[in-house]
Design a binder for these strands. Sequence first.
DNA 1: GGAATCATGTAAGTAGTTACATGATTGA
DNA 2: TCAATCATGTAACTACTTACATGATTCC
Lengths: 189, 189
Amino acid sequence: MEGKQSNTVNALLGLLSIHPMSGYDIRQLIPGSIGHFWSESYGQIYPALKRMTAEGLIAKKTSRTKGKPVRHEYSLTEAGRTRLAAWLKVPPAAPAPVRSELLLKLFFGGQVGAEVSRAHVEDALAFEQKTLAVYEATERAIKAAHPHNPHLPFWLFTLNLGRHTSKATIEWCVETLKELDRLAGIDGQ
Amino acid sequence: MEGKQSNTVNALLGLLSIHPMSGYDIRQLIPGSIGHFWSESYGQIYPALKRMTAEGLIAKKTSRTKGKPVRHEYSLTEAGRTRLAAWLKVPPAAPAPVRSELLLKLFFGGQVGAEVSRAHVEDALAFEQKTLAVYEATERAIKAAHPHNPHLPFWLFTLNLGRHTSKATIEWCVETLKELDRLAGIDGQ
DNA sequence: GGAATCATGTAAGTAGTTACATGATTGA
DNA sequence: TCAATCATGTAACTACTTACATGATTCC
């Protein structure tokens, strides 16, 4: 019954459950795995690994190959695996309130010309199309790399949500652009 | 050419552009306006109002009605209005990386039984359905309250995005539940 | 030889929430 | 009279990012 630990620890436990890794490896792995819904910087990772080692959740193995920099590889201990499973079973906390600068500017868009909002939405459309392309590329890549991995379906679930929301956002951009044109037309006459 | 100020300041400038308000009023107004994509706590609002007053972006009017607590009402100055318009025109920064505890647990869902993930997704579905209902109720409410307000279309844009992404999320939940059932079925045999 | 990248870490700063503190007013 | 809510604010804490510091290795 310890107090709730940070989710950084839980994310690292999860990643180390795939296979043992160094802090650097973890950072490199993130973009191609949990990167589209979770981020960790070195400033979080290294101190967390230290704390987790002290708590006995992970074990550190230092290897000195001649002509190579010292490498610190961490692997889950039994305690770590237990902790991960326990955390996975707890219903996730309510999502932290989002903050969208785009929507904030759009909400107050009436204070400036409609063409300002139009430009912002067009940028968002381009951005979201790229994001969608990345999701689809990632999906193909992990399907090709781990075709028989039992975890694959779970990895795809998370990518699917990205795909769904990206498509919805793109639709909204298109609709909103039309509306903004109508607005500008009314103003212009 | 000052350094970029925090978005809290910009959000408050925007809200005060609707009409003059106290810090308390601002906090109360948020849930029914920008609350679905932006949040501010008292711990942010009061210090920000103080700084903004010092910078001349807003003006404070203190009113002492007998039998009422002192009231500090803030209104935009010309400088504030100019600053708001300038900020609105700048393309919004790339969205901060999201962090979804649900997706994190789902990604590592293979470490525990499929029924664990199923329960999480079902919770998410219920949550999202409520969220969608709130968007739709808010939409009706502001349409009824401000039918001819020129800012109304902009307010609706932001709600529309919420509606679009909520619906996409709900679809994803339903699909994922089906997939999880298939997975559990395969395991179970 | 020099740039990129592998690799590990720390320090400082920013942004934000939560809890606390205070006190008046209103309504059941 | 007691709870809710109006109203303003501060202090402590947490989380996180960025920049810095260091040094080895690999590839051109």
